[in-house]
């Protein structure tokens, strides 16, 4: 039953963390989900999968956390390891993932965790960016996200982020594909119902990158978006595309403070 208490704790934590932010708007926004109904994808897993996720030795996603932890400590190309900046002190990354995607102040662009890791590589480590969905980028992203496990996703939205939020919300609510459906039709209006053997969840992002049973491997949130788009026979957007980044931001706020679960297992 633990997951049913999460939304409440999440809301409390969300409210707390919102206080420390720069000019951020009200944390409770109008989305297609009533705040008191919000549940993690965890709630829709079988009890066996839930206990597998909860057990660090059984959870397959931990392989990527371990690998990412190693990469985090190792020197990259000609330069220092991530840990040389983020190992201790103010720049530790505990809780960092809860605030992504967010604006990169140097460029004004919206970046997600994958994007931030690549910016650190190019700006601070004299290294090439890693390819989206490559094993090293998945591992580093999963490791960094795991440092926020149990912490509430930030619902704070700065004024700069607002316009991206609207783009993401529009993507979520726009019908597309040969089946002419939007994310909203399934994840706002029909969650809890059966799509054949699958119970439709609310489509939250808090477990990603996640080990998906269907993939038999770990993948990013954008890979999950591409599957949902392909499912309604829409042309998926590319990894790291502007629409998917904005969608990711909309989902962060829409999660209304659910706790991060990476490394999670999903169906």
């Amino acid at each position: 039953m633990r997951h049913f208490r999460w939304p409440l704790i999440g809301l409390l934590l969300g409210a707390l963390s919102a206080c420390g932010e720069e000019p951020a708007s009200d944390s409770v926004r109008e989305t297609g989900l009533a705040p008191d109904t919000i549940v993690s994808g965890y709630a829709f897993l079988t009890p066996e999968t839930q206990s597998e996720q909860d057990d660090d030795f059984l959870n397959p996603a931990n392989l990527w956390v371990d690998e990412g932890g190693k990469l985090f400590l190792s020197e990259t190309g000609v330069s220092a390891a991530c840990a040389s900046c983020h190992g201790e002190g103010d720049m530790r990354l505990d809780g960092a993932a809860t605030r992504y995607p967010t604006i990169d102040h140097a460029s004004g662009e919206l970046v997600n965790l994958e994007g931030r890791i690549n910016l650190c590589r190019t700006r601070h480590q004299q290294a090439d960016p890693l390819e989206y969905e490559s094993e090293p980028l998945l591992s580093l992203t999963t490791y960094v996200a795991s440092l926020s496990r149990g912490q509430a996703i930030s619902t704070a939205l700065s004024t700069d982020e607002q316009v991206f939020y609207e783009v993401g919300k529009t993507y979520f609510n726009t019908r597309r594909g040969q089946f002419n459906l939007s994310c909203r039709e399934c994840h706002d209006l029909n969650w809890g119902k059966q799509l054949r053997g699958d119970t439709i969840s609310q489509g939250h992002s808090n477990g990603f990158p996640a080990y998906r049973l269907e993939w038999q491997t770990l993948g990013s949130l954008h890979r999950r978006f591409r599957d949902c788009d392909a499912g309604i026979r829409a042309e998926p957007r590319t990894y790291g595309s502007a629409d998917y980044l904005a969608l990711e931001l909309y989902l962060r706020v829409r999660a209304q403070g659910l706790p991060m679960e990476t490394p999670a297992i999903r169906r």
């Binding site: 726009t174 594909g177 002419n180 042309e235």
Partner: peptide, 11 residues
């Protein structure tokens, strides 16, 4: 229709 997958476009 909007953003239909390339293989299915127009069908």
């Amino acid at each position: 229709m909007n953003q239909v997958a390339k293989e299915q476009a127009g069908k």
